[in-house]
């Protein structure tokens, strides 16, 4: 297993899991969201090819009400 910090929370994930795989597992595919990995944007077109590695820090964000 690898440890990845997802939105500030440590998570144990299967090695080789892609960004798309993680989103699928969380029911987030098709939602309007954006992913940042270790400070860099992971474009939607690359979600299927970017594999997570041990120690990655992910941010997954959406638009919410605000002023």
């Amino acid at each position: 297993m690898i440890q990845v910090i997802v939105n500030g929370q440590p998570e144990m994930l299967a090695p080789g899991l892609t960004v798309l795989g993680l989103l699928e597992a969380r029911g987030l595919v098709g939602k309007r969201l954006a992913v940042e990995r270790n400070g860099e944007i992971v474009p939607k077109a690359r979600h299927a090819e970017v594999a997570l590695t041990d120690g990655d820090r992910l941010e997954i964000v959406v638009a919410v009400g605000g002023g």
Partner: peptide, 13 residues
């Protein structure tokens, strides 16, 4: 205008 926040992973999909 909208704010940008972390999604609640696994909650209320």
């Amino acid at each position: 205008t909208v704010a940008i926040r972390r999604t609640n992973i696994g909650q209320n999909p």
